[in-house]
Each structure stands twice: as C-alpha cells, then as structure tokens.
Design a protein around this nucleic acid. Sequence first.
DNA 1: AATTGAATGCAACAGTATTGCAAAGATTTC
DNA 2: GAAATCTTTGCAATACTGTTGCATTCAATT
Lengths: 144, 144
Amino acid sequence: MIFIEIVKMNNDVNKKLLHKGVKPTSMRQLVYEVLDKQKKALNLYEIEQQFDNVDRSTIFRTLKTFQDNCVIHRIDDGTGAVKYALCDENCTCHLGDLHIHFLCIKCGQTHCLKDMPIPKMDLPNGFLFKSANFVVKGTCPKCS
Amino acid sequence: MIFIEIVKMNNDVNKKLLHKGVKPTSMRQLVYEVLDKQKKALNLYEIEQQFDNVDRSTIFRTLKTFQDNCVIHRIDDGTGAVKYALCDENCTCHLGDLHIHFLCIKCGQTHCLKDMPIPKMDLPNGFLFKSANFVVKGTCPKCS
DNA sequence: AATTGAATGCAACAGTATTGCAAAGATTTC
DNA sequence: GAAATCTTTGCAATACTGTTGCATTCAATT
C-alpha cells in the first residue's frame, strides 16, 4: 500500500485529498489549507502570496490536479484571473453541485453562494446543458 | 450640423450608431457590420481577423466606445478572451436587458439567448444585486 | 485655408496562463 | 538496501490577451 504512512498521520487534510483520489504531497496539503482557511475564492496570484518561496507553476499544476479530481472548482468572475474554491466533501462536480457565485464590485472578493444552486433551465431547441458559470455582481454584506 | 452628410447616405448602420450617440466613422461602421453579420459573439482577435490591416488597438478602442454607448455588450464565457455581441436596438444595458449566454464546448461559439433573461433572485442577506454574467456551457444545435 | 479636436496606427508594455526541461523526491523492483 | 522508474517540483522562457503613450492622420469648425 502506497499511502499507509501518510494516512497514519491522521491528518484531516490528507484524508480529504485521499478521499478525492489525490496523493497528498506537502504542497497539495498546504494549498488545500490556504483555500480552506479563506472563506472566499482565491486566484493563482493570491494563493502564491500565501507562500514565501513556492513557484507559480507548481501551484498552477497543483490547482490543475485539484480540478481534475474535483477538489476545487474554478470560477470565472470576469476580474481577469480565474479564482478557485474548495468543493464540498461530497461534491462530484456534476450538475447538481453547481451553484451561483457572487463577486463584490467594491472589495473584489468572490463568494460561493452554496445555497443557490444553478436552476434547471429550458434551453432553446437543440441546445444541450452540460455545465454553467453564473456570476452575480454587486456588493457583499461587508461593503453594502 | 455635424452628421448631415453621413445621414444622407441613408445607411442603416450609420443610423443605428447615431441612434446610440456614436459618431459613425468608417472603422466603427465596419466593426458594427462584422458583429452584425455573425450570429455569434466574437472576441477581439476574431474581429481583427476580419480585416486586413487594422490595428488591434483601434478595434479595442472602437469596442470600448461601443460598450460605453450600449451598442454592444461583453460576455465573459471563460474561454480566456472576452467576447462581444450587438445589443438590441432598444437595449439600455440595464438589468432588464441582461440575458443568459451559451458557450458551445465543441465549436467554441457563444450565442446570446435573448429569450432567456437573467431571472430575479433572492440573494442571501446583505448581498446587493447590480449585474450578472450567466454562461451556460454545452453543445449547440449544430454540434448536438 | 488655418485651426482645433477626435480617431487611428504603431510600438511598447503589463498581467495572467502555460509549457519544456532538469532536479529532487517518492515508489517499486530486484 | 541499491537501482530503476515514475511523479512532483522549481526555474526559465514564452504565449496570449488586454492596455496605454505618442505621433500621425482625418474630420469638423472657424
């Protein structure tokens, strides 16, 4: 067995990564923790700022791995840089898990509105729904 | 009077630009026509490709002028480049005019679903709605 | 025709995303 | 436990999109 030693550490983050099928390296653990601590979505630059000497490409590829394994989801909020937020533990990154995101035009923070799922829609004839990126813009509770 | 001569040309595009308060230069007319002919939204690069020798910055500033005057609206469909599509003639670029956009993940084309307005939403406490960017991804009639 | 202001083209630059390659680390095989 | 193999990481370079400064051209006014 590959991961026995790491699992023995009984570390929550490692367990969660394993549960999603991602080998929990130290970088991955740290990036996960950064995203977990923040209650908002972060872009690549903001994550990079949380570290002293970690290369951007490493974080970039870590995030890619996370996306491929439904650890995080990406949010195009129109600010120019894609943001990332942790998926729920039982998220499968399928339709039912999609929710609306909110970008505050004052502070720039982007929040997951997990209570607001993407509604079912009747698309025009011939259009097939696969995924969606719904971003509402306005002011957040702190800035309103 | 400034625009008499141009108006006399009795050109539809010029009339439409004037109606939105944009002085109809030849570049603006051409860019408008490019967007009008396509039934899909185009990004800066795609528009540039329609011309032989027009600078990107010129088109960029033309598009900016168009946005400022509600001639076109921008669409962040997550493909990396912002796309642009003509507004309806009576569009005021306010809330009621917002609609859902559709990105085909096979052909990459983005369409305005003008019959699908952004629905009213009850946001969580403290969140104020100002604008929205809703993009549905899937396959379009041609690719389904 | 001269003057003024707006629009355009050129060039350079900034920010984000992405890749190739080599070094370091982890895992498996013998 | 050492060698071989595969994965992850760091460095460097690059691509792509968006944006701005400045000089020139073009249109409108005097």
